[in-house]
Design a protein around this nucleic acid. Structure first.
Lengths: 136, 136
DNA sequence: ATACACTCTCTAGTGACTAGAGGTTCAAGG
DNA sequence: CCTTGAACCTCTAGTCACTAGAGAGTGTAT
């Protein structure tokens, strides 16, 4: 594959141009070769690496985790256990977030159900918020 | 209630001191009276307002929404419809987030299930990430 | 040769705080 | 009254993962 510009790389990976530069800045992508006019030119490995990053980000991995996964993926002879651990930790984190959101939704929906759409003075949603339930 | 210090307000509302100052800075809390030495002193209304804010934040409302809810709660004669709308929009947002997280978890768990804990070279999790599935 | 889309660097902004530096004030004990 | 020390003050900068914009330079097609 001939070298491609940053815009073309963006098109092929669905990652925006400023984001690509940002990834380079934080060391997720290696600095590419440049034209005489100092424009970036990328090859096939950059496309693959950036797709990997994008997919991991879509799955909700944070950048430090992406960094770890990238570095593991470059050591094909190592055991898969670390990868497994990172992914499992992430699944647990997702589970916690889901549980929290479900609880929030429950609390909100029950005040909404109780809301008679009268005046704000009698609004259950507002009441629920104004409730003094801080522990001392 | 006698006036209380920012630290005491923090204790009574479980909101950290720097966060209280931040809320004042962004106009969520009115600037309180000060002692001669320029220290903040709060009354009962500040405790109530900050509890309201804290509870709304715990429910996942963002600061602009909290601002709206606060302003509505101060117009007790108005209809409750606006409050209802804000809360319902928020429930929908929570639903979207839950759906997304459930989908992510599914994708992650199926790669984890397929992972035989061998070498990274055969790791399904890594494979799934490296998959070239960007739309052109 | 010119047009113009693309690229460059750099700075600053987002949301909702959090952390730290360096200095001042309050309340209690001696 | 004096001292100690916890709590307070302001201000700046950092977090995360980008996003937006200014102002200048480059590449390519006609």
């Amino acid at each position: 594959m001939a070298d491609i510009s940053i815009g073309e790389l963006a098109r092929r990976t669905s990652v925006k141009v400023p984001t690509i530069r940002f990834y380079e800045q934080v060391g997720l992508l290696p600095a590419p070769v440049r034209t005489e006019g100092r424009q970036r030119r990328y090859g096939a490995t950059a496309v693959a690496r950036l797709n990997f990053i994008r997919h991991a980000r879509e799955l909700g991995f944070e950048l430090p985790a992406v960094r770890e996964l990238l570095s593991l993926s470059e050591q094909p002879e190592r055991s898969c256990i670390e990868v497994d651990r990172i992914a499992r930790r992430h699944v647990e984190d997702i589970n916690r977030r889901i549980a929290r959101l479900v609880a929030l939704r429950g609390e909100l929906e029950s005040s909404l159900d109780a809301c008679g759409h009268g005046r704000v003075a009698e609004c259950r949603v507002i009441e629920a918020l104004a409730d003094q339930t801080a522990q001392p």
